[in-house]
Design a binder for these strands. Structure first.
Length: 315
DNA sequence: CATCAGGGCCCTG
DNA sequence: CAGGGCCCTGAT
């Protein structure tokens, strides 16, 4: 499906702003719906039932941030549509986030201080809707990076439209509910294993309109957690990813999966169950603080491989 | 070749 | 609340 450029605009994020660390998270597994190189991010979006391509480019500095956004689609877009889409972009990537308090509180912290210096201006956030992130969360479960990548690509191959814009082809998420006519057996044949049932049921619930992302966003964290845990296939490991990346909650830390613990143990002075207690020192920013440390580690690894980290990442 | 743990979750007892 | 089963993959 070929898309044409329909819009070019400018977004001015709050300062300080780190374009690359915001638009590219090396800790996330790579997927065929985006492309990144320094100063530039390409991303497909399924928004209000339209297939969109977007290219974000940094045209400012850390202190005077400016991002251009090009939007591609098949047909012309109304200004209302563009406005709502941009608003959503600003939310998802946290472009209006105010980091001042966080930096003031922790810039002198032994571990966090140097990280803040290196990652200055990075926003937490993620490009996907709740539905899309649920799919990702499920293909992450109980398997290696390689397998997650493979399952995600197989799903794109079967259900995601392939979009072409500005000379690149990228896969796009499908409309929630599209799996109605797909049987669990069909999904199983894509080597999703027991996850087929989770994906099927979640897609069903979106089709039925039982999940309202907008409404959930406006509710408090405890309510969000309770509601998300009701979803079939969402447990403690998946729910915190969702709360953090989709709902932008930073004041909680209740779960560390085994592989994460191994990595934290290399960075923080305590191990095991004591880690969660240790993170209390980061107060209402505990999840954000750990995100900073985590992403910093992966960025460093990207620049100059860290051998112990390479061992912990099961390729 | 066979066996088994793994970046969870659900369900049962 | 502990523990078995589940899909697949790759390590041993």
């Amino acid at each position: 499906m070929k898309l044409k450029r329909q819009y070019l605009g400018v977004i001015t994020p709050t300062a300080p702003f780190n374009f690359d660390a915001t638009f590219h998270k090396p800790a996330h597994f790579p997927s065929g719906d985006n492309f990144w190189q320094p100063g530039e991010r390409w991303q497909t979006f399924r928004w209000q039932s339209k297939n969109l391509g977007a290219i974000f480019r940094s045209v400012g500095t850390t202190q005077k941030p400016k991002v251009t956004v090009e939007i591609f689609s098949q047909k012309k877009l109304t200004s209302d549509f563009v406005e709502s889409f941009i608003k959503e972009i600003v939310y998802r990537y946290n472009l209006n986030f105010d980091l001042t308090d966080f930096y003031e509180e922790f810039t002198k912290d032994n571990i966090l201080g140097p990280v803040i210096k290196r990652m200055r201006g990075m926003r937490p956030g993620h490009q996907d809707s709740l539905y899309e992130y649920l799919i990702i969360g499920i293909v992450l479960q109980n398997c290696t990076v390689g397998r997650s990548i493979q399952m995600m690509q197989t799903l794109f191959d079967h259900y995601g439209p392939l979009l072409e814009f500005n000379g690149k082809r990228l896969w796009c998420f499908w409309e929630p509910g599209i799996l109605e006519k797909v049987s669990e057996e069909d999904l199983r044949s894509l080597k999703l294993g027991y996850r087929a049932k989770f994906i099927k049921r979640i897609d069903d619930q979106f089709k039925e309109g039982l999940i309202n992302e907008e409404k959930l966003r406006s509710q408090d964290m405890q309510t969000q957690m309770k509601e998300l845990l009701k979803l079939y296939g969402v447990g403690p490991a998946t729910v915190w990813y969702l709360l953090f990346d989709v709902f932008h909650q930073y004041d909680f830390f209740n779960h560390i999966s085994p592989w994460e613990e191994k990595i934290y143990s290399h960075v923080f002075p305590v191990t095991g169950d004591r880690l969660i207690k240790y993170f209390d020192r980061f107060g209402r920013y505990k999840q954000l603080a750990v995100h900073y440390v985590w992403e910093d580690l992966w960025w460093q690894h990207k620049k100059k491989p860290i051998s112990w980290l390479a061992k912990e990442i099961r390729a």
